[in-house]
C-alpha cells in the first residue's frame, strides 16, 4: 500500500506469515471412495444453523458446516437514501466480509477486496428470485455476511446463501421460498466420474471442476448455477442432481431452525 492507512494502527510493512517445514512423509492420496475427513462422496459436513443471534438486526442467522462459520445479519426494510430515485420495489444490498482471521493466510486489506465483491454479486443473484420485493416499495434491505472461518473455497458462498435466506425469513421479508445452496467438486481424470459434495478447501484445490447450485426446493426451481473448470455433460447432470438432493436436505434443516425460532419467540411473549 502506497499511502499508509491513517484510520488504523500502523503495522510493519511487508509482513508475511511464518513458514514451517513440511512433514517428510506426506500422506499419500488414497484413491478409494473415502475422503480425507472420512466422508463418503455424497456426504455433507455436519451442519449447525441458528437464527436470531444478532439482537440489533431485524433478522440474523449463524451457520457452521465443518470448519466453515458464516454469520448473516439483515437490517431493514429501511428507507432508501435521499439521493436514490423513486423505486416501487425494495432494493437488496449485499455485503460480504471475510474476517482477517478467517483463513490460513491473514487478510490485511481492511476495505473492499476483489473476492468479496464478486461473491456478493453471486449471492444477490441467488437470493433475488425468492424475494417478493414489490410488497416493500421505496425501501432497501441491507444484508451483511461475515465469514468468520473459511474452509470451503467458494463453498463458503453456498453456506452463506442458506444462512442469508434464513436470516431474511427471520426478518419478516416476504419471500416465495427458502433458498438453499450446495457445491460440488469433480476430481481429475482417474476419478473423473465421481463428484464430491460439499468440498473442503483442500478437495476443491485438487479438483478439475467446481459446481455450485442454488435452488428453492419447496418450489422446485433453480436460482443460480455456477460452473468453473472442465466437466463432461453426463457428469455435470449427475452432479447437479446430487447437489439438488443435498439442497432438499438443507431446506429441511432451515425449516426446522425457523420453526424452532418462531416457537421460541412465541413462548417468550
Amino acid at each position: 500500500m502506497q499511502a499508509s492507512d491513517r484510520r488504523r494502527f500502523t503495522a510493519p510493512d511487508g509482513a508475511s506469515a511464518l513458514k514451517y517445514r513440511q512433514d517428510s512423509s506426506p500422506a499419500a492420496r488414497v484413491p478409494s471412495s473415502s475422503r480425507r475427513d472420512g466422508r463418503l462422496a455424497a456426504q455433507v459436513r455436519p451442519i449447525f444453523l441458528q437464527p436470531g443471534l444478532v439482537t440489533e438486526a431485524a433478522g440474523s442467522a449463524y451457520i457452521e458446516a465443518g470448519r466453515t462459520k458464516v454469520l448473516c445479519a439483515v437490517y431493514g426494510p429501511k428507507p432508501t437514501p435521499p439521493s436514490a430515485p423513486f423505486n416501487p420495489k425494495a432494493r437488496l444490498n449485499v455485503e460480504i466480509k471475510f474476517a482477517p482471521f478467517a483463513s490460513g493466510v491473514r487478510r490485511f486489506v481492511p476495505g473492499k477486496d476483489t473476492e468479496a465483491t464478486g461473491l456478493a454479486a453471486v449471492l444477490q443473484q441467488s437470493l433475488l428470485p425468492s424475494l417478493l420485493l414489490e410488497t416493500l416499495p421505496k425501501s432497501q434491505i441491507d444484508l451483511f455476511v461475515t465469514v468468520l472461518e473459511s474452509d470451503g473455497w467458494d463453498n463458503d458462498l453456498s453456506i452463506g446463501v442458506t444462512a442469508a435466506s434464513v436470516a431474511l425469513a427471520e426478518a419478516g421479508i416476504p419471500m416465495r421460498g427458502l433458498v438453499t445452496a450446495c457445491s460440488a467438486a469433480l476430481l481429475p481424470a482417474p476419478n473423473s466420474k465421481s463428484a464430491i459434495l460439499d468440498p473442503t478447501r483442500d478437495e476443491a484445490r485438487d479438483s478439475s471442476a467446481f459446481v455450485s447450485l442454488a435452488c428453492m426446493p419447496a418450489l422446485g426451481t433453480v436460482t443460480n448455477i455456477r460452473l468453473s473448470g472442465a466437466v463432461e455433460p453426463d457428469a455435470l447432470t449427475d452432479t447437479l442432481a446430487k447437489a439438488h438432493e443435498v439442497c432438499t436436505l438443507l431446506h429441511g434443516v432451515a425449516k426446522q431452525a425457523l420453526l424452532d425460532s418462531a416457537r421460541r419467540s412465541r413462548t417468550d411473549e
Binding site: A58, K78, S139, P174, M175, R176, L259, A262, E269
Partner: peptide, 27 residues
Amino acid sequence: VYAALVGEVSREGGVLSVKGKEETQAI
C-alpha cells in the same frame, strides 16, 4: 396459495393469510 412469511395461517371467509412476527418492522 403459498406462504410468504414465517408465522401462523389464518382463514377468514375465503381468504388465507399468514401473520408474521409482531415485532417485525413495519413499512
